[in-house]
Nucleic acid binder design. Sequence first.
DNA 1: TTGTAAGCGTTATCAT
DNA 2: ATGATAACGCTTACAA
Lengths: 361, 361
Amino acid sequence: MTSTPGRRVTLADVARAAGVSTSTASVVFSGKVNVAEATRRRVLAAAASLGYAGPDPRAASLRLGRSGIVGVVISGELRHAFLDPVTTAMMDGLTDALASVSTGILLLRDDPRGDEMPPITEAPVDAVVLIGWSGRTPSALEIVRRRGLPVVMIEGDAGEGIPRVTLDNREASAAISRHVSRLGHVDVATVTLPLDADRRRGAVTAERVAAATVEVTLDRLAGFREVYPDAPGVTASASLVDEGMIAARALLTEADGGVRADRPTAIVAQSDLLAVGVIRAAEECGLRVPEDLTVVGFDGIAADGLGSLRLTTVVQPAVAKGRAAGEQITRMLAGGPGESVHFTCTFREGETAAAPPHRAG
Amino acid sequence: MTSTPGRRVTLADVARAAGVSTSTASVVFSGKVNVAEATRRRVLAAAASLGYAGPDPRAASLRLGRSGIVGVVISGELRHAFLDPVTTAMMDGLTDALASVSTGILLLRDDPRGDEMPPITEAPVDAVVLIGWSGRTPSALEIVRRRGLPVVMIEGDAGEGIPRVTLDNREASAAISRHVSRLGHVDVATVTLPLDADRRRGAVTAERVAAATVEVTLDRLAGFREVYPDAPGVTASASLVDEGMIAARALLTEADGGVRADRPTAIVAQSDLLAVGVIRAAEECGLRVPEDLTVVGFDGIAADGLGSLRLTTVVQPAVAKGRAAGEQITRMLAGGPGESVHFTCTFREGETAAAPPHRAG
DNA sequence: TTGTAAGCGTTATCAT
DNA sequence: ATGATAACGCTTACAA
């Protein structure tokens, strides 16, 4: 219980005070070798009286060659990412699967902070998980590759030999679109996730699609287009309820706020949060869901505040995705090979899809 | 561009290949000393051809005595914490203020994982930010103290000489309660945040309050009780819309679902998310807000999906709180003293509070 | 401008 | 069961 001396207390100090060698003191803390009970107690007593807090993790990490930290690079702003229940669920699975090899998750910035070296260059991480895709993903990957760090990519293509955790975005999207089609809908529109790092809102045009970089968005769009090749779409700037509302208003209303005559009878949203926004916007302008408008989503995550709304959607195993990523990292850290893991969504019938209303024609 | 040799490439290897000393090679990377342009290029070329990824952060951190990592301990489950816009906003301010001294934020687990040593013991962090309070906070603090790490506590009492970032929870809560009182409300109830680590729902009883540990909850409750000393309350298990709905149903409805005759005319919620849930529950049972029921919140954060709802609430400067914590950490890392910082909420009039309805009576 | 050398605090190997 | 010793890969006085 001594107070701060000039210098930091080290293992050597403790050993000296206890009258043992540093190696003996070391094993007392690591517990990896048998130590006589008496010695053990003497060392612990010395440590306590000197206020030694245990081996310095920085020194240990140099010696051991690992820091017990796994870096997570999330594309886009952290605040956006964490407000998305899908991301949160994934992080849950990830931290869980990583618990045995890691003391924690290091959130790495991915913002365009000028010319500085990206944080991954200087962060003492044992492995890296990349989530999503941004313009800086390739350079991040290159750094990680050179540092020889195990890396797993969730929802994104990292190229050659990088284990991925993927979802059948296209198939699932096609499946739910077919469901809408079978109900009889012809005039259908889609609300997509961001197309690129710009996250600019607006109509989904051929040019924008050609320049798009976010694979998830493109895959889900492709699945939708399998069923509705020429259907219009609006892209949102984030997976948020409010964004869904904005997009839906663009699809449903005239400039004066009235409902358009040529409005779609169904809207396929690329996320549940967007779908909830679409529903709110629909209700706002007097359309009932699903009687007047069918709305389907994607993700199947129970977001807070949705109340009793049972959305027709496809459910993705978000926690399992995170867990799979963590498991692959764990394997690679143990020297094994990393494998890609593919997940499948399951359709879930809710109460927001029905046959289209009869129209005067 | 050489492929994996048996051993990791070190600075010494690069120096040897470039025909310079390791110290010279070192400064080429750190850029802290002038190096002849020719030498510089030679070293860089050697590094590139050997596939050297730059100085190993683990070794650097031992030598420098800092890792560039700041640990964040959030009480409770991460997934809960991150779904709260207040936390997210705080994290934003924190990462922002920390950008100059830190490559990232290390999310430390705080779960009751049996007997193991808590992660802070083994994590190579330069400083720690504690958010909220849990039963393990004291032991976390003790470890941090022994390791001599700078620490700042947000919303919680760390005791002696630990800089805190605080909010005028009690005063703000009293202020908004007075607002409700001035409108003429007499039968008022409150919905509180969790009282303790258990997060058990239920009525706010004297016993539960006496055993409560969450300071924020107690402070806001105290402020409310300044104005309504004997008003009933219900405690929620988290700051979520759905929890607000559950709590409100307990306050407003009979067992059979009908509205209670003795229902309150106003509900003071301890967070905006809870308030939104209260409003949803009220609408569910046919009560109009604010005509039939006044609902006020706390936080003033623009959460997604609230649409155009203008809640009457008190606004807390969440981003500024995070930033302040980051700034104190930065100062302490620079050797300066850390200071406590106190923030004040501001009342914001919305559209969810009005005079109580006239009653038969 | 570049090189020499001394650690940073730990852990693992190998004797004893 | 314990101890001497050699790394781990880097940075920075200080010397040349």
